[in-house]
Amino acid sequence: MLGEVNVVILTEGSEKIGLGHLARCVSLCQAFESRGIYPHFIVKGGKIVWNFLSGRAFEVIDWTTNDNNLRQLLDDHDVAIIDSYSASLSTYQYISELVRVPVYIDDYKRLDYPRGLLINVAINAENLDYPKKEGLCYLLGGRYILLRKEFWDVPHRSERNLVENIILTFGGTDVGNMTARTLWLLKKNWSNCVKNVIIGPFFHDVDAVRQAADSKTHLFFSPPATQIRDLMFGSDIAVSAAGQTLYELARIGVPAVTVMVADNQANNVKAWVEKGCILDAGWANDSNVLKNIDNSLCLLCSLEERRRLSTNAKMFVDGLGPSRIVDEIMRAL
């Protein structure tokens, strides 16, 4: 019986780590919940976990440092899903010995993973030359992109003739104060546009963002996924960090100018650019990043260019990734 399958999700989320791991693990959790299976979370992290996982079963424990504790935590679980940048290979190996189906979410061939299912949702993941190993199966590429349920089934979005609305979303931590810096640029050169700004839970200098705002700027503090989705739908262009939000924008078809804020984003951004899905403004700490953003926005004044990016991006993200992954996990049991 499906309801008898016990699933545990081991991940991490904090100011230093960010919220991307939690967000994509929640999407898998939601796919299980839609089938009457309710995973239990074990999270290495801070206070943000309480808000992010409200209403779900979870424990906040540094599971990456104590194998003896893991045996007790994973007792009677059939499936363990691991999404971590800090857990060691020995921890992965130990978990793989404790459950029937270990599942690993990877971004850049971080480890030589043991037996199980390995997920990499980057659209170029099939080109990463993962090793062929007995007992290790791969779920690679855009078919498995992890999106929260609010982005699974979305209506058609049409492009307006003129750019009227720009959304800014730089993740939970706002690396390099990109939000305020970009908002000053928009205030100067794009003053006629509405600017909707997502403020994450770990922003340190909200006052700087407020100072850069004008009468057409609206700030949204840690909004729920439904509100983020609706804000995206109303946007003509997004200026965004190149993390999990990139997939949500692609699903809706919002033309995006991306800024890289973490090393693991580089290969994925390169692939999206090559597929004609986004415009890349470079790294947050580049001296010319604001100039690149401005130039990209100018290119996206073209309705034809916005339609091109939107159409290409939507081809790679259909919202069915979490369901496909759960299908594969259930088949492996």
Rank of each mutant, 00 (worst) to 15 (best):
G3H: 13
L10D: 01
L10T: 06
E12F: 10
S14R: 08
E15S: 14
L22V: 11
L22G: 03
S27D: 02
L28F: 06
S34E: 15
R35T: 08
R35P: 04
R35A: 07
G36L: 08
I37R: 02
P39R: 01
H40Q: 03
H40W: 02
G46E: 15
I48K: 09
I48Q: 10
I48W: 05
V49H: 06
L53P: 11
S54A: 13
G55D: 09
F58H: 12
V60K: 07
T64P: 03
N69M: 13
N69Q: 14
N69Y: 08
L74H: 07
D76E: 12
D83A: 09
D83N: 12
Y85R: 04
S86M: 05
S90N: 13
Q93N: 12
S96A: 15
S96C: 04
E97Y: 03
V101W: 00
P102D: 00
P102M: 00
P102Y: 00
G116A: 08
G116Q: 02
L117G: 02
L118F: 03
N124C: 13
A125T: 09
N127W: 02
Y130R: 10
L136E: 01
L136R: 08
C137D: 14
Y138Q: 01
L139W: 00
G142C: 14
R143V: 01
Y144K: 05
L147P: 06
L147I: 11
K149G: 02
K149D: 15
W152G: 10
D153A: 09
V154R: 07
I167P: 07
I167V: 15
L168K: 11
L168G: 09
L183M: 13
K187C: 04
N189Q: 11
C193V: 14
V194P: 00
I198D: 11
G200H: 07
F203S: 08
F203D: 09
V206D: 05
D207Y: 10
A208S: 15
V209P: 11
A213G: 09
S215M: 04
S215N: 10
F220Y: 15
F220P: 07
P223R: 06
T226A: 13
T226N: 13
T226P: 00
I228H: 04
I228F: 11
R229C: 12
D230K: 15
G234T: 04
D236I: 08
D236P: 07
T245Y: 04
Y247T: 06
Y247G: 12
E248I: 04
A250D: 03
I252E: 03
I252C: 03
P255I: 06
V257L: 04
T258E: 06
A262Q: 06
D263G: 15
Q265Y: 11
A266V: 10
W272D: 05
K275G: 01
I278Y: 12
D280I: 02
W283H: 12
N288L: 07
N292C: 13
N295V: 07
L297A: 10
C298D: 14
E304K: 14
R308F: 12
T311W: 10
D327N: 14
I329V: 12
M330G: 00
